[in-house]
């Protein structure tokens, strides 16, 4: 465990908490993509299936349970809460699950480290996490005026990915024999998806203006 990895995990947790708190406090999920949240839930469940038999550390186990729990709560709010569900922007959140899930499923069957069910599900979760933000980014672009908390949520998520890259660089330099090509390439693609958003986020911040994405 190094500081980059730790910072990444904390930022990830923070991003989820920012979102959950926003929904809880405002009783609104306007601007939030349910598709992205459900894809993240699928990512966590398929990746953390090993929770019960593959114990690595208390740290990891606690994070796994918290990620699954908090993301489930967000999905519950958006689908079931009597006031929150009315604010869901269904008409703009139209990205098709199948466009993301199908290629990731096929790719995880073709490119994986070992051919067994749990390894394939784990690989699928790595691929799916890389692209799960796309419905949210598309929704942001359609909504035009991005509210601060939604903007911060996406920014924190992107920052989390950036710290994971620093963590890999650090591990590669300090741990002999450490390599994880599949995770690295997926991670680089994932972080790349945020670059455009980052650019507009920083511009808006520098000019202390409200974040607006071009169409």
């Amino acid at each position: 465990m190094n500081l980059f990895r730790f910072a990444g995990d904390i930022l990830h947790l923070l991003s989820i908490l920012v979102l959950l708190l926003k929904i809880h406090a405002t009783k609104s999920c306007a601007g939030i993509s349910l598709k992205t949240q459900e894809l993240y839930l699928a990512v966590f469940i398929t990746r953390y299936l090993d929770l019960f038999w593959n114990f690595h550390s208390l740290y990891n186990s606690v994070f796994k349970v918290v990620y699954i729990g908090t993301t489930s709560m967000i999905v519950w709010y958006m689908r079931r809460h009597r006031n929150v569900k009315l604010t869901y922007d269904r008409d703009h959140d139209t990205f098709r699950y199948l466009f993301l899930v199908a290629p990731c499923a096929v790719l995880s069957l073709l490119i994986n480290a070992r051919y067994n069910l749990f390894e394939i599900l784990w690989t699928f979760s790595i691929y799916l996490e890389a692209v799960a933000i796309l419905p949210q980014l598309v929704l942001l672009q359609r909504t035009k005026n991005v509210d601060n908390l939604t903007g911060n949520y996406v920014f924190l998520l992107g920052l989390y990915r950036a710290f994971y890259i620093l963590n890999w660089v650090y591990r590669f330099a300090t741990e002999p024999g450490y390599s994880a090509w599949l995770v690295w390439i997926s991670g680089l693609i994932q972080t790349g998806l945020y670059l455009d958003f980052f650019y507009y986020y920083v511009q808006a911040w520098k000019q202390s203006k409200k974040l607006q994405l071009p169409s």
Partner: peptide, 10 residues
């Protein structure tokens, strides 16, 4: 164990 090592991240 290589496969264990790569799964030490979240």
């Amino acid at each position: 164990n290589k496969s264990k090592k790569k799964k030490d991240e979240l």
